[in-house]
C-alpha cells in the first residue's frame, strides 16, 4: 500500500462521491428516459430494499441534502473499498519468486 496512486485514487473517489456528487445531474438517466418516452416506465416496481437507510443515495435522517448525499457517497466508497479489497486480496496469487 505504499503506492501513491492508490492513496490518491482513494482520496479522489472520496471527494467525488462525498462532495462533487451534489452537483451531478438529477435528470433521469438514459434507460429511465427511454422508459418514460416509450411508455414502460410504469412497469417498474420499487426495490425490496427501497427503505434502506441509503436508498437513492441519501442518508436517512439527515435533512441537509448536501450532507445526506455526501455521507451516502462516503459510506458507498468505504463499502465498495472494503468488499473489493477483501475479495481481491483474498484471491491474489503470491509471487513465489520474491526473495
Amino acid at each position: 500500500m505504499k503506492n501513491p496512486l492508490i492513496i490518491v485514487g482513494f482520496a479522489v473517489s472520496l471527494a467525488l462521491a462525498g462532495g462533487v456528487s451534489y452537483y451531478a445531474s438529477s435528470q433521469p438517466d438514459g434507460l429511465e428516459k427511454v422508459a418514460g418516452d416509450v411508455g414502460f416506465l410504469d412497469s417498474a416496481k420499487e426495490s425490496a430494499v427501497k427503505d434502506s437507510p441509503l436508498a437513492e443515495y441519501g442518508l436517512a435522517g439527515v435533512d441537509n441534502e448536501r450532507i445526506s448525499g455526501g455521507l451516502a457517497g462516503v459510506i458507498g466508497v468505504a463499502s465498495t473499498a472494503a468488499v473489493s479489497f477483501a475479495i481481491f486480496y483474498g484471491m491474489r496469487r503470491f509471487n513465489k519468486s520474491k526473495p
Binding site: 485514487g9 462533487v20 457517497g73
Partner: peptide, 27 residues
C-alpha cells in the same frame, strides 16, 4: 490487487456523477 480494489471503488464514485447528455436526460 490494490489497483483492482481502487478500480471498483473509483467506478462506484464516478457512477454517482450523472452528466447531462440531452434535454432532460443524463448518463
Amino acid at each position: 490487487a490494490p489497483l483492482a480494489g481502487l478500480t471498483a471503488t473509483f467506478i462506484f464514485a464516478v457512477q454517482m456523477l450523472n452528466f447531462p447528455v440531452a434535454a432532460g436526460t443524463s448518463g
